[in-house]
């Protein structure tokens, strides 16, 4: 059992969720309420990582973040190490890869808040920020929670893009999914089996938790 790989995976998932939560609130809310030219294109772009093979996205990120790219150079000059094959690089890749899993359910969540209810909030004297906090977030919460759980569970299980952008550096970029792959390559079926079972248990627990919580929210509203 590779505990370092497991904690690394959990850390990666936590960072991804922490950064994507405000992003999905802002972007999901914007896409839910606003009509604008090119909205379809934006929605398609958000959904793109869902259909692309992880290796394709990984390849582009490798090129975009590489030592010779503007982003890579900037990162190198700021932090003294390169972005690819680092934990930070993994976080950036994970965020991009999880955009559809975070934004889509968040958008559906905000779309479920009736426009009259939002209008009633402003007629009650609530500023847009107060309306978001007191009315929209509590009502869009099931969608946001789905978004965060999907993102979390999906990050734990991601393999291809991690391998492309991160490689398999122990303690830095070797996640639990990569560790399982390494163990299988080394004919260590016992370790691979234990780690797979742990991953199944964690994922099942997270998803069951969402179902339980959203059922509770459902009861609260009815």
């Amino acid at each position: 059992m590779d505990w370092t790989a497991l904690t690394l995976s959990l850390r990666l998932a936590a960072w991804t969720v922490a950064i994507l939560l405000p992003v999905s609130v802002l972007v999901g809310r914007f896409l839910a309420y606003r009509q604008f030219g090119g909205k379809g294109l934006v929605e398609a772009l958000v959904m793109l990582p869902l259909v692309l093979p992880p290796t394709v996205l990984g390849f582009y990120l490798l090129v975009a973040f590489g030592r010779n790219s503007p982003v890579g150079e900037l990162w190198q000059s700021l932090f003294g190490h390169q972005l690819v094959f680092s934990f930070e690089g993994l976080v950036v890749a994970s965020i991009l890869f999880n955009l559809p899993f975070a934004i889509q359910p968040a958008q559906r969540g905000f779309e479920a808040v009736p426009i009259e209810v939002r209008e009633a909030a402003s007629c009650c004297g609530m500023s847009p920020l107060a309306s978001l906090w007191k009315v929209e977030l509590p009502l869009a919460w099931p969608g946001l929670m789905t978004a965060m759980v999907l993102t979390f569970a999906h990050t734990l299980g991601e393999f291809g893009i991690v391998l492309m952008v991160g490689g398999s550096i122990p303690g830095e970029t070797r996640t639990i999914a990569i560790a399982i792959y390494d163990r299988v390559q080394a004919f260590d079926a016992r370790s691979a089996g234990i780690m797979s079972a742990v991953l199944v248990a964690i994922s099942l627990f997270t998803i069951a938790l969402t179902y339980w919580l959203s059922a509770r929210v459902g009861r609260r509203l009815s």
Binding site: E116, V117, E119, A120, C123, V135
Partner: peptide, 27 residues
């Protein structure tokens, strides 16, 4: 809208479903 002192009763009421009657009024 939120800076106009206006009270409005909507056709379908548009109450805040997650709040009690008193919380709706306090809002």
């Amino acid at each position: 809208t939120h800076r106009r002192r206006v009270g409005i009763v909507f056709q379908n009421y548009a109450l805040f479903p997650h709040m009690t009657a008193a919380q709706n009024v306090m809002a």
